Computed example of a mutant assay.
Amino acid sequence: MKTNYIWLMGILLASMTATAQTSPGKTAYNDESHNSYDHINITNGKRLEHIQMEWNNKTCKMELVDNKMADLYVNGEKIPAAEWGKYSEVIAAIREQIRKNQEQAKKNQEQAVRNEIQAKKNQEQAVRNQEQAVKNQEQVKVNQVQNVHNEEQAKRNEEQSVHNQEQAKRNEEQSVLNQEQAKRNEEQAAENERFIKNLTEDLVHDKIIPDANSLHQATFNSHEMTVNGVKQQDAVFKRYKDKYPRISEGEFTYSRDGVIEGK
């Protein structure tokens, strides 16, 4: 009894290395090193199960109908039902292991379904990745074109910067010239004011005009002198030309609004 128990427990341990499968007509597990299997068929509405396990060159075979043992063989020798009690614990252990194998097979099937779903997702992701890779390549091309444009723009900006610097330098030089011209204009304005003041005082002194406010216009050229539209005598003209070199240098006109034309 003890020897048989140990031997069948060895068969149980061998069965734990097999892969469970409960679909009708399929081998539930098959360890080629021990030629073990659990084969299930559905015949005439009955569930027929054939379980065979080998261990230490001994073969234990069980046949079940609707999960009830119908036959038991050891090394091909059929064990009478009356002696099944000797193997009851081991048989129960084997069937429990078969049940676990079947549960594992179910889990394996469910995992296979999940794996298939995941594989489909992976394929879809791979397609998306390929599409994204194409988009990335297109974006790289766009970026390259943009980089060329940016480099060209940077070159133009650099050239413009040089032009701006040159223009700034010219502006600075022009500003200096403008300042110098403004200074000359200011000096000329002061000179004009002194000249008109002196001229007006002489005209008043010579009684050509009664007072300074009476001077409305004065004109000088190479041959005559007029004050408020009245031509002056040649002797007067000569005296003023000699005293004021500006008069002898060319045409000169002064008006009451402060405008002086000519040299």
Rank of each mutant, 00 (worst) to 15 (best):
N147R: 08
Q123P: 03
N157S: 07
N129A: 04
A154K: 08
Q137E: 07
E131T: 07
N136I: 06
Q125C: 09
A154S: 07
A105V: 02
V113E: 15
V134C: 08
Q132F: 12
Q132W: 02
V142H: 02
K120I: 06
N150R: 02
Q125I: 10
K106P: 05
N129W: 08
E152N: 00
E158C: 09
E116C: 09
A112I: 00
K135W: 05
Q118P: 07
V148C: 14
E158V: 13
K120G: 10
N143C: 05
K155P: 07
Q111E: 10
V148G: 10
H149E: 01
V127T: 02
E116H: 00
S161L: 08
N108Q: 14
E159P: 03
N108M: 15
E152R: 12
Q104P: 04
I117W: 11
K135N: 12
E110I: 15
E138L: 02
R128K: 05
K107E: 11
V113A: 15
A112C: 13
A112H: 11
A126N: 00
N115L: 05
K107P: 10
E116D: 11
A119W: 07
A105S: 09
E151K: 15
K135D: 11
S161P: 06
K120W: 00
Q137C: 08
E116Y: 09
E158L: 11
K155D: 02
K121P: 05
Q104T: 11
V140S: 04
R156E: 00
Q160D: 03
K107G: 14
N147H: 02
E131I: 03
Q153E: 13
N122G: 08
N136K: 09
E124R: 08
Q153V: 00
A154W: 00
Q132P: 07
N115C: 11
Q160S: 04
